[in-house]
Computed example of a mutant assay.
Amino acid sequence: MKRWATRLAAGLPLAFCLGAAQAEEAPIRAVATIGMIGDVAAHVGGSCVEVTTLMGPGVDPHLYQPGARDVQTFQDADVILYSGYSLEGQLGAVLKRFSQMKPTLAVAEASIEEGELIAVEGAYGIDPHLWMDAGLWSRIAPTIAQTLGEMRPDCADAMRANAESYGRQLAALHDWAGRAVATVPEQQRILVTAHDAFGYYGRAYGIRVEGIQGISTEAEASVADIRAAAARVAELGVPAVFVESTINPRTIQAVIDAAAQQGQEVRIGGELYSDAMGEAGTAGGTYIGMIYENTRNIVTALGGTPPAMPDALRDWAETWDVADASANVPAAQ
């Protein structure tokens, strides 16, 4: 990968110089590796930025294999925004090469204090799924605003204002998610998912998290992993488990079947967004919608009742025709 990235980078044509006036008028071409960064960048940058997201709905960043088209996308960008903490492991060599040519920022690493990170065993060292805590993830908005503002000083004030406004929405979302999870009976606050992507969510909102496999999805869950998860489900009387949009549901189904053999009937509580947001043009295709829909599905399936939508999110709700926190909850399967 490093040799391939070096060859491609060595052949990059020299960019021709634009006039100062034209450069200021043109939107910044920003490339974000994942949608959870791209959506924040779009909110912060407004009309001063044009955001392209590399990995779309259903794409697992742990497994993503970069291709020549991705390198071309990076080549055309004015700035590259990625999460860091090894989330984009397969892209590491390419990102390192481009960091020597243009602004390339690991937004999570630049925004969140070390003491607030979750340490994990294995190659990662740090759990990279920081967007699962809306309070933590809101920290990337001012970081992005500062980076883009330095590139477009004429937009800097508007970007700072956008970051502050968006931060207030995420603060309201964070508070709402915590109040929603608190409505689940305490003994049922157990979130079982295919892989361990919800650690920050569990810590932030007060729910125990049980991932069938670890942080990475590079290897499938083993038979031992499935048996261990089924034993915990049966022991704790878990009423529902959850599939993820980026992972094959067969692992969860195997746990359901194994738990049934131990006398515990458990159902699928719904599909959660873990390493990617939903389809563009839907509420779940926004970062706010990702956390909102996940929380709504988790709380409802585990026996709670989501509270009313906070006033700070009314504009978002109207834009996406979301009537109420408890509306349109899909039936458990």
Rank of each mutant, 00 (worst) to 15 (best):
I140L: 01
D157W: 07
H129V: 02
Y85H: 15
A221L: 07
W4P: 04
E113Y: 09
A260W: 06
P103Q: 11
K2M: 13
V79T: 03
G84R: 01
V184A: 08
V299T: 05
A110Y: 12
D324Y: 09
E50G: 11
A301S: 11
A229C: 06
T183E: 08
A106K: 07
W320Q: 02
E186Y: 10
G45P: 00
S138N: 09
G115Y: 15
N297F: 00
V255Q: 00
N162Q: 10
A280H: 11
D78K: 04
M36W: 07
A276V: 03
A158Y: 12
V59D: 02
V233S: 02
I80E: 00
G92N: 14
V59Y: 03
L302K: 01
Q213I: 02
S47D: 15
N162D: 07
E220F: 01
M132D: 03
G304D: 08
Q100M: 14
T295P: 08
R3S: 07
D175M: 12
M101H: 12
P307W: 07
L91C: 05
S138V: 06
N294L: 09
G269W: 02
G270Y: 00
R267K: 11
L191E: 13
I288P: 00
A221K: 02
G67E: 15
H43K: 15
A30L: 14
I212E: 02
V49Q: 04
E24K: 12
A327E: 13
G56S: 11
I140F: 05
I256N: 05
A145G: 10
V94W: 13
A204I: 14
A312L: 05
D157Y: 11
I212C: 05
G237W: 13
A26I: 15
V44R: 04
P57N: 03
I112E: 02
A327M: 10
L170P: 04
V184L: 12
G285W: 04
I126F: 01
V184W: 10
L12P: 03
A156T: 03
Q169C: 14
D311S: 12
S326F: 09
D76M: 11
I207G: 05
E244V: 05
A231Q: 08
V255P: 00
T282R: 01
W131L: 11
W320F: 15
H129L: 00
L236M: 13
G284T: 10
S326T: 13
Q187R: 15
V107E: 04
D275E: 09
L95S: 00
F74V: 06
I298S: 10
R314N: 14
Q262F: 09
V94K: 07
A123T: 08
L191M: 12
R227Y: 03
Y200K: 07
F16V: 15
S222W: 02
V329C: 08
T33H: 08
Q146H: 10
L8D: 14
T217W: 00
W137N: 03
